[in-house]
Amino acid sequence: MFFINPDPFLLPSYRISPFRTDYIALNSNLPEDDFAVGYFDKKFGMGKWQYTYNGREAIELALEKYQLNKEDLVTILTTSENFYISSCVTKSIERFCRWNREITSETKVILVNHEFGYPYPNMEKLVATGLPIIEDCCTTFFSQDDAQSVGRYGDFSVYSFPKFFPIQIGGVLVQVNSEVTPSKSIVDKKQVQYIQKVVSHHLKNENALLQQRTENHLYATSLFSELGFTLRFQQHPSVYPSALLLNSNEIVSNLNELKVFLAENGIQSSVFYGEEAFFIPCHQNMTTVDIEFIHACIAQFLKTNSKTS
C-alpha cells in the first residue's frame, strides 16, 4: 500500500541522482581509495584528465581555453535536436559569449550534449567541420556509440559524477585532442580525496551498478507502458540512461501539473520542454517498490488529470 499526498513533512525523496541522505554517513565512513585514478588513466589517458567541482565547472574550464569574446558564438547540439537544454549549460556559456542551436558561419565552438545518456548520432560529421568540439558527457558516463568513441571526438569532454554515483559534488574535465592544457579546478585536496574515495568505491562495483541500472530501466519501461507511455529514445545495449524519459502520447493534459504533483509527493521530475515528454528518476539505488511507488503516483494523477479521464 502506498500513501499519496502525505503530510509535507513526511515526504519521501526520489532524486534523478542516486544520492540519498544516508550517503552522507556512508560516504564519510569509506576508507581512502585511489582506484579511480587508475580507472580514469585507462579510460581517458594518463595526465589527460582532472577532477572538477562539478560538470558546470568542467564546461567553463574548457570554454576558457578558446579565448572567446562576448560576440562569439557557441552552438549547442543535442541528441534529440529538441530545443530543450539545461540552464546549467547555457549559463556556463553565457559567462563567455552567446549561444545558439544551429551551426552557422559565426559558430566558433560546438558543444555536443549527449542527452540523458544517449550519444549524439552524427559525431563524425561534426568532426569533419573542423570546428572545435566540447563533448558534454555529464549524463553519459557509461554510455557509448557503435564506434566506442563517445568522449573522444572533441578537444575536451566533461563528466558529472552525481548523475551516476551517490555523491553531491564532482566531475571530470578531459583534455582529449586539444594541445592547450586547461586551468586547474577550484577543488581542494580534501574535496579531491572525498570525491576519489566515493567514486572509487562505486567504480569497483561497476558491473553490478550497470546491471541494476539496466534492470530497473527495463522494469520501469514495462510498468509505465501499461499506462500508455513509451520511451523517447530507442534503447541500445551500450546506453545507460541517466533518467527515464517518456513520451506522454497525449495521455497527460498538462505536464507541468504532473511535475508539480510529483514534487508534492517527493519525486523529482521535469518536462522535456518542446515535446510532449517528461523524465523521472530511474537509477541503480531504486528498488522495484520505489519504481512502483512512482508509477502509483502517476496513475493517481491520471485518474483526475488525464486527457482521457
Rank of each mutant, 00 (worst) to 15 (best):
M1A: 15
N5D: 13
P6T: 14
P6F: 13
P8M: 02
P12L: 14
Y14W: 08
I16C: 02
I16G: 05
S17Y: 06
F19N: 08
I24L: 15
A25Q: 12
S28I: 04
N29S: 13
Y39P: 03
K42V: 00
K42P: 00
F44I: 00
F44C: 12
G47T: 12
Q50P: 01
Y53V: 14
G55Y: 05
A62I: 11
L68N: 03
L68M: 03
L68P: 02
L77E: 07
L77S: 05
S87L: 07
V89W: 03
C97G: 04
N100V: 03
V109M: 12
I110H: 10
I110G: 07
N113Q: 06
P119G: 09
N122S: 15
E124R: 05
K125G: 06
K125T: 14
V127K: 14
A128T: 01
G130C: 05
L131C: 05
I133Q: 10
T139E: 13
Q144D: 08
D145C: 05
D146L: 12
V150W: 03
V150R: 07
S157E: 02
V158N: 01
S160R: 01
S160H: 05
F161G: 04
K163Y: 10
P166A: 11
P166I: 11
G170Y: 05
V172A: 10
L173E: 02
L173S: 03
N177R: 13
S178N: 13
S178I: 03
V180R: 11
V187F: 07
Q191M: 15
Q193P: 01
I195V: 15
I195M: 15
I195Q: 15
Q196W: 08
K197Y: 04
V198Q: 09
L209E: 05
L210E: 03
Q211R: 10
T214C: 06
T214A: 12
N216A: 08
L218P: 02
Y219A: 10
Y219S: 08
L223Q: 05
L227K: 13
F229R: 11
T230Q: 04
F233L: 09
Q235C: 01
H236F: 11
S238A: 06
V239Y: 14
S242N: 09
A243T: 15
A243L: 04
E250K: 11
V252W: 03
F261E: 06
L262F: 08
N265Q: 09
G266E: 02
Q268C: 05
S270L: 04
V271I: 14
F272L: 11
E275K: 06
E276P: 01
P281A: 00
N285R: 12
V289P: 00
D290P: 00
I291T: 11
I291K: 02
E292S: 10
H295D: 06
A296S: 15
L302Q: 10
T304F: 13
N305P: 04
S306L: 06
